[in-house]
Structure formats: structure tokens, C-alpha cells
Amino acid sequence: MRAKTERRRRNGQFKLLDRFSSLRDALNGLGILVVEQHNARIHLVVATCVLALGLLTGLSGLEWILVFAAIALVWMAEAFNSALEYLADAAVPDTHPLIGKAKDVAAAGVLISASFAVMVGLWAFIPG
């Protein structure tokens, strides 16, 4: 975060221009995620296919909500996992067992969210 933004926060002044700056930073982070993280690109392809399939099959309102929620959950988990990996690598460039455990646990979060997304997809797309 920029020092200028930090000063404004401490002074209690937060302007609309700062909101746009925060949005730009978030979009930059999304770009980094897609460009640098292979799994994020896989999530992008899968999410696009799922959304196209949803349009073709005519999902109900509830099904759309759950599909969007599952996609968002997977993307959030992937973003947090990547952020943790970047921070860990910057803080401790050498191999460290606790850093390895932290990365594995964060990856487990992605796996859990992706497993949930698969369950939602099965429920939404397989006639019951």
C-alpha cells in the first residue's frame, strides 16, 4: 500500500480518488493472479465453461446463485493461497518446514473450495 494512502487513513481523510486507487490495486492483483498462477488460469477456463454450460442448460435462480458463489469461493481461496505464497517466499526465501506447512494448508483451502464447487456443479447440472 502506498505511504500517501496510509497518511490519509491516519488523518481520517479518505477520498473518492483513493477508492479508485484501491480498485486499481485490486484489479492489478487479479491480473497478477491470472498471469502468474497456473492454477488460476485453470480456474478461469473451468469457470468460463461452467458459466457457458449454465446458459445452455437454463439454470434456475438458486442454481445460478450457488454456481456464482462456488466460483467466487474458489477464486478467493486461490487469491489468498497465492498471497500467502508470495509473502512466505519474500519473508523466508530458504526452505523452512513451517513455511512448507503454511503453504500446504493454504493449498488445502483451495482444494476444499474446489471440491465444494464440484459438488455444486454436480447438483446444478445433473438432473435429479
Rank of each mutant, 00 (worst) to 15 (best):
L111E: 10
G61D: 14
V110D: 00
T48H: 08
K101V: 10
V105P: 02
G100A: 07
S115E: 05
R9M: 15
A72Y: 09
F68I: 12
A83L: 10
K15E: 13
R2P: 03
E85I: 13
F116E: 01
L53I: 03
V35Q: 07
R24F: 11
L16V: 11
K15A: 12
I42A: 08
A83V: 04
A26V: 05
L33C: 03
L87S: 11
T48S: 15
A47K: 03
R9F: 10
M76R: 07
I65M: 12
D104R: 15
F14R: 03
K103P: 03
L53M: 11
R9D: 05
E6Q: 13
V118C: 13
N11K: 10
V74L: 01
S113G: 04
A70S: 14
E6D: 10
L44Q: 09
N28T: 13
D89C: 05
S21N: 07
N39C: 02
R10V: 08
V67D: 00
L122R: 02
S21K: 04
G58H: 12
L84T: 09
T5N: 04
L56I: 07
G12R: 07
L44G: 02
I42Y: 05
G29I: 06
D89A: 12
S82F: 14
L56W: 09
F125C: 04
A70D: 00
A124Q: 02
S22A: 14
R19Y: 09
T5E: 12
E78A: 15
T5S: 14
I65T: 10
K103A: 07
M76E: 06
L33W: 00
A79Q: 08
L30T: 08
A72T: 12
G128P: 07
A3D: 14
G58M: 07
A3I: 11
I71C: 01
L122M: 06
Y86V: 14
F68N: 05
A69N: 04
F116R: 01
V50R: 01
R2N: 15
V74W: 00
I42V: 14
R24T: 08
L30C: 11
W64L: 02
N39H: 10
A70C: 06
S22N: 05
D104V: 04
I112P: 00
G109D: 03
G61M: 07
R9P: 00
V74E: 02
D18H: 09
L44R: 03
I32A: 07
A72L: 15
F116K: 01
D25T: 09
L62C: 03
H43A: 15
D25I: 06
I71D: 00
G61W: 08
D25Y: 04
G109M: 06
A102W: 08
V118A: 15
E36W: 02
L84C: 08
L33V: 01
G29H: 11
V46F: 07
T48C: 06
A40W: 00
L27V: 12
L111W: 13
R41C: 04
D25S: 13
L33Q: 11
G58T: 08
K103M: 06
I112D: 10
R19P: 00
P93D: 03
A79M: 09
Q37R: 14
E63Q: 15
I112N: 05
A79Y: 15
W123S: 10
L98T: 14
R2G: 09
A52G: 02
A124C: 09
W123N: 04
R2L: 12
R8S: 11
S60A: 12
A83N: 12
L23Y: 11
C49S: 10
V92Y: 02
E36V: 04
W64N: 01
E36R: 11
